[in-house]
């Protein structure tokens, strides 16, 4: 029943909502509160219906359905539109397998390479980003005077008024072989020939780190800011050198914030499209570009969807593993 699998996707959310509604009803019946007015009594019938419809529309059509549709799609074969729903449209794992084994046989080195590179590079960018943001966040939260902190904050936020593409391109201009940095390096005689920053993916790392700077800084800042200054001073008074204070006192305290910042940066990085496209070297292939091409160039939605879910699941698994490793619960990271 190939057609029904897509139909199921449509029905599932309604069933879930119905179940929730019934549960809510039962709960309300069990704990009778005479002063409690019903939803419609509180809001009036018209307004009540409008609210319900709006929320239902939002959750169903904008949140739940698209994803569900993609999940279902990813288990279907790639077929030209006339054949969809026909006898060949069966449920299959082929799209998922194709990341490892090409449909034509042979290992899919290109895509697996892109997949692994994207993940590893995202981890590297997350680490780099953390290394940049931690001192800044610490300065803003504990060390700096209020006035200077405001200046730093402004300096961090203002560049984000510029749109992403312009930012990426200006970075490209800076890092190009005839760009400002290379010219400066050659002028002071540090190198004879220009360094290929873009080909070496330096541009990619710098661009991605820069793009998600704020995403890392604010959770860190929030976490460190609530640390009692006296704890830092107590450690110092007991003879701890500065790096030990960070290692023993500040970082353990800020761990939830660190986890939350790193998780977000990693996820966004692995899923980013523009920066890798503009700043990656010519041989660099980011996994999202592959997905993008399946959706918009090859019009192979099932495979694009399958790849997307592989990426999503890999990222979630990695994040969970890291949280487990550093003994942070998921709940703490959203505090």
């Amino acid at each position: 029943m190939p057609v029904s699998s897509r139909l199921v996707a449509l029905i599932v959310p309604f069933v879930v909502i119905a179940i929730f509604w019934l549960m809510a009803r039962r709960e309300a019946q069990r704990s009778q509160d005479p002063t409690r007015k019903s939803y419609f009594e509180r809001n009036g019938t018209t307004l009540g219906i409008v609210f319900i419809l709006l929320v239902a529309f939002w959750t169903l059509f904008l949140v739940v359905l698209p994803y569900l549709y993609m999940v279902v799609e990813s288990f279907h074969p790639t077929l030209p539109p006339p054949k969809r729903g026909g006898p060949e449209d069966v449920l299959t794992l082929a799209q998922y397998k194709s990341l490892v084994v090409l449909p034509t046989g042979g290992t899919n080195v290109t895509h697996m390479g892109a997949f692994v590179f994207s993940i590893v590079a995202s981890i590297a960018v997350t680490a780099l980003n953390f290394a940049i943001c931690y001192p800044l966040a610490y300065y803003m939260a504990q060390a700096g005077s209020a006035q200077k902190v405001r200046l730093v904050m402004l300096g961090l936020i203002v560049p984000y008024w510029v749109n992403e593409i312009l930012r990426a391109f200006s970075l490209r201009l800076l890092l190009a072989s005839k760009g400002l940095i290379n010219q400066a390096l050659m002028a002071i005689g540090l190198t004879d020939a220009p360094i290929d920053f873009l080909g070496n993916n330096v541009g990619l790392y710098v661009g991605l780190s820069y793009a998600y700077l704020l995403i890392m800084i604010f959770p860190l800042y929030n976490a460190i800011e609530s640390l009692d200054k006296n704890q830092i001073e107590a450690a110092r008074d007991l003879g701890a050198p500065w790096w030990r204070i960070h290692w023993d006192v500040v970082i353990p305290y800020a761990k939830p914030g660190i986890a939350s910042g790193c998780t977000m940066v990693f996820m966004l990085c692995a899923g980013s499209l523009a920066a890798p496209l503009f700043l990656g070297g010519p041989r660099t292939l980011w996994f999202t570009s592959v997905i993008y091409n399946f959706f918009f160039q090859a019009f192979n939605w099932p495979r694009g969807a399958a790849y997307s879910f592989i990426l999503l699941i890999a990222c979630i698994a990695l994040v969970m593993l890291m949280l487990r490793l550093f003994k942070v619960s998921l709940g703490e990271t959203i505090k």
């Binding site: 009692d228 006296n230 704890q231 001073e233 107590a234 110092r236 008074d237 003879g239 701890a240 023993d248």
Partner: peptide
């Protein structure tokens, strides 16, 4: 001479024990 190098130890008004 910094606080970590002085032969003094301070007990803070709010104690500042390490909670973790």
């Amino acid at each position: 001479i910094g606080p970590n190098k002085r032969p003094t130890a301070l007990i803070f008004q709010n104690l500042a024990l390490f909670p973790l």
